[in-house]
Design a protein around this nucleic acid. Sequence first.
DNA 1: CTGAAAGCGCTTACAG
DNA 2: CTGAAAGCGCTTACAG
Lengths: 342, 342
Amino acid sequence: MKRKPRPTIKDVAQSAGVSVATVSAVINKSRFVSDELVGKVLKVIDKLNYYPNRIARGLKTQKSLIVAYIIPDINNPIFARLARGVQDTMEKASYDVSLYNTDFSDKKLFRHLTTIVESRVSGIILSAWHNPKVKEAISLIQNLNIPLVIVHSPRNLDNVDSILIDDKKGAYEATCNLIEWGHKRIVSLGVKNSTTSRLREEGYRKALVENELAQEKGLIVQTDNFSPGDAFLTTQELYKSNLSFTAIFAHSDLLAIGAMEATLERALKIPEDISIIAFDDTYASLALPKLTTMHVPNYEIGKKAAEILLRRLSSASVTEPPTHEEIVPTFIERKSTRDLLR
Amino acid sequence: MKRKPRPTIKDVAQSAGVSVATVSAVINKSRFVSDELVGKVLKVIDKLNYYPNRIARGLKTQKSLIVAYIIPDINNPIFARLARGVQDTMEKASYDVSLYNTDFSDKKLFRHLTTIVESRVSGIILSAWHNPKVKEAISLIQNLNIPLVIVHSPRNLDNVDSILIDDKKGAYEATCNLIEWGHKRIVSLGVKNSTTSRLREEGYRKALVENELAQEKGLIVQTDNFSPGDAFLTTQELYKSNLSFTAIFAHSDLLAIGAMEATLERALKIPEDISIIAFDDTYASLALPKLTTMHVPNYEIGKKAAEILLRRLSSASVTEPPTHEEIVPTFIERKSTRDLLR
DNA sequence: CTGAAAGCGCTTACAG
DNA sequence: CTGAAAGCGCTTACAG
C-alpha cells in the first residue's frame, strides 16, 4: 500500500499561479512579496495542507537546525533537568535537540557520534565526562569543525567552551556550614574512582583544614557507586566501627538516602542524633526528613550551555576564545541537619 | 570565518577513480562491487574522513529515519523510562528519536507537531493524553498518514495502535492485597480531574465491593495534583477528621510520600500503625521505609510501543488493524505494608 | 516586484 | 560488474 505523497512547493506554486521562488519567499519572509500574492499563496498552502520539507531545506542551506545532546542516561534526574534546560532554550531559537544516551559506554558514544556527524547537526552539547575516551570524542568533533559545548566536563580542557559545577567549593561550603553549627566529627561519604566525588572530598578536606579540625581517616569512606544500597552498606560498616561522629556529608542525594537508612536502622534520629547533608538536590526534597543539600541548578546549567552554543552558531562569535563557566551550588537547609550550638 | 566544507560522495568517487554510484553501493552494500573497488573506496573514505550526508539521503529516499516521541515532561521519571525504552529499541533499528515536551500545553503540542511534520519523521509516538486537544492532534497525524502509536492513551480510541496501563486492575489488586491482609478500613488517596486516578479509584471500589466491605465516603480523598505537598495536606486533614483506618492506597508514589510525611508527623509508625501502598514504582524504593507499590513497567512499555511502530514502518503491516495492549502493573511488596493477620 | 534555473548530496533505475 | 544521468524539494543568486 502506497501513501499519498505530500504536496511540494511546486504543487503550491502551480495551484496559486506563481513561481516557487515566490512561495518560498512567503514561507520564509525572505523577500518582499505583494499582499495579493501572499494572500493567494497562503490560501493554497492551507487548502493543500502543505508543510515545507525540512529535509530539502536542510540540504540546500547545509544545516539541519538540529543539535545533539549526549548524556549518560536520561533516567538520571540530573541529566533530565539539564536536557530540559537545553531543549527549552534551543527550541526558542527554533532548533530541535536529539538526545543520545551513552550508558557510560565508549562504544555507544562513538556509534552515536557517527550518526550525529552524518546528520549534519548544527552543534553538539556533551555531558560524557565519565567516558574514558571523551578526549578522543572531543577532538573528532573539533576536527570536523562542529560547534561544541561541554557540560559537567572533564577539567583541564581549555580549547573548548565548557560549563561545569564547582564541586570543590560546593563541598567546602556544605562542610563549613556543618562546622559553624558546631559539628567537629564529620563523615565524608563518597564514591571510588569518581572525579566528582574526589573534588567534593577535596572541598570537605579544605573546610576541615581551614577550621583546624583533624582529618580522621576512618571518617572518610567510599562506596563503589552512587547508589543508596551501596551507601547503606558502607554507612552500616561505619557504625559498626564505633567511631564517633555527629554529621555525614554525603556526596549525593542518593548516597544520603542510603546513609539515612543505615542511621534509622541504628535507632538514631535525624537530625537529633545525626545530621546529614546531601549534594545535587535531585531526590533530596522527597526524603523524610527532607534532606538539607547543596542545590545544583541543572536546568539553568543546561540553559546556559545552550546559550553558549547559540552564540557560536551565530557565526559572529566563531573566532572568540572559548569560555569557561563554573557554577557554585547553593546551600538549601531542610530538615536533616541540626545546629548543635542552638 | 568560513568552515571548510565536508567532502561529498563526489569527492570520494573522484579520489578513488570510480563513479558515485559505486561509492554509494559500497556505503550501503546495495549492490555487488568488486573487492578491488571496495578496498579503494573504503581507503579513500577513511583518508578524506568522509561521512555520508543523511540529509541528502533523506531527501532522495523520502524518509528521515527519525521518530518523534511526544511526552509531557522528560523530568518525570515515568516518561524518562518510557523514553529510554523507545530510544533503545528504535536505535537498534537505526532510527533516532527526537523528544518533545508539551508541559501539558496544547499550544506546545501543536507547535511541536508542525516541526515534526515538517521534519518528515518516519513515525510518531504520543504520550499526551492529558492534553484536551489530543484527539485533534491524532487526526492531524492520521490525515497525513504518519504512522502513530499512542502510549498511556486516552481510552476509547480504536482506530489507532495503542498500549496502555490497566489502572483499574492494578488498583484492584493493590486493594485486594490489603484486604487479604485483614485491612478493612482503607483510604483511597487520589487526584481530582485525573483520568488515571479515576480509574485507580474504580479498581479500589471494585475490590471493596467484591469483598463486601463498606465504601466509606470520608475515606476516599483527593488532592489537586500528583505532588507530595498536596498529599501531605490532604492526609493531614484526614487524620484531623478522626476517621479510623489502617491502610492508605495512594494513587502514585509521590502521593504516598506525602501521606508518609503526614503519618510520621502524627507519630504513627509505618507499617506498624498504618500501611501504605503506592503506585508507579518510580520513587517508591527510595522512601524510608521502602514503599510497597504497584510496579508499572514503563521501560518495557516504551519498548513495546517502539516495536509496534517498527512493524507499521515495515510497510508489510500497514493494512493490519490497530492493536491495543493493556499492561497490568505488578505488586511489589516492600516495607510500608503489614499483614494484620500474621 | 517576480520568475526561470542552477544546485545542495545523495540514490536508483537504466544502459552497457 | 560499473557508470552516466535524472531527480528528490527546497533556496538563492541572477535577470528583467
